[in-house]
Amino acid sequence: MKFKLFLILFVLYSQSIFSEEKKIDPNSIHKNLRCLVCQGQTISDSNSDFAQTIKLVVKDLIDEGKTEEEIYSFMSDKYGEWIVFKPELNMHNSLLWILPYIVLIFGGFFIFSLIKKRH
């Protein structure tokens, strides 16, 4: 039994290593960019002139060897943060990323304090 567990953990581990080497999939980037001229669609869903142009530029940026994060920051430089669906972790977005975890931790403490009160 222990051997099997070890085997599984090994598989999990090796997967994480292989996944590092994967090339950037342009479509996953398109999905995180807003098509500014469409009603709330992503670049991936749209065939508008704008979306087609952005797809070309994303392809160029990938070929230039840019990372996913670099591509997002290029886009938000040009079009504002509105274009990326994943808000950057910066000063004015820090609350957005941190508050959920604060709620989680606070809730945990609260429950813990209720339970501890038993006699």
Binding site: V37, F50, D60, K78
Partner: peptide, 13 residues
């Protein structure tokens, strides 16, 4: 021709 340059200027339509 393909609109790529326009992206540098933040053009969207």
């Amino acid at each position: 021709i393909n609109g790529k340059q326009s992206v540098r200027f933040g053009i969207y339509g």
